[in-house]
């Protein structure tokens, strides 16, 4: 796709393209979009890695680690669909995303639950812990022994 056809496709670029140096001959809008999508996926992966190193306790790491990549995967799969557009790819991608969206919350919930129940929580980072409040209230109600 040549620079002229890019200018046709993207009207906003057309006046600017007059004074600008010509785009490279093998530039294509599709490649640019695919590049942006791949970079988005890569950035979200990087953020997940950095997040699980930086954040101080399991529950915080859980947020950084499990979920931004779902969006990253969406971006990368959209890039694949742009490069190889076919029905077979589309159905497989829909399946991948469905399973990812179904299973990712399960992972997060199970890990979070185990972390809370085994006390891998940094209490000093919590501004509010209503679960502990409710547990304490229930224990007081059932057995008036020494809690805390």
């Amino acid at each position: 796709m040549s620079a002229a056809s890019v200018a046709l496709l993207v009207p906003a670029l057309a006046p600017a393209a007059e004074g600008m140096p010509p785009l490279p001959e093998d530039f294509s809008v599709r490649d640019a979009i695919v590049g942006v999508l791949i970079l988005l996926g890569a950035f979200l992966s990087l953020a997940a890695g950095v997040g699980i190193v930086r954040f101080p306790d399991v529950l915080s790491r859980l947020h950084a680690g499990t979920k931004p990549q779902v969006l990253g995967l969406v971006a990368v799969l959209a890039a694949i669909l742009l490069e190889v557009p076919s029905w077979g790819v589309l159905t497989t991608i829909v399946l991948i995303l469905t399973f990812q969206l179904l299973t990712q919350p399960m992972t997060a919930h199970m890990l979070g639950r185990a972390a809370y129940r085994t006390d891998h929580v940094r209490r000093d980072l919590l501004i509010d812990d209503e679960l502990a409040d409710d547990i304490a209230r229930r224990e007081r109600a059932s057995a008036p022994s020494d809690d805390d």
Partner: peptide
């Protein structure tokens, strides 16, 4: 939006 937000918080 939340993914981007959490990602920026992480980095």
């Amino acid at each position: 939006t939340a993914s981007i937000e959490v990602a920026f918080r992480a980095v």
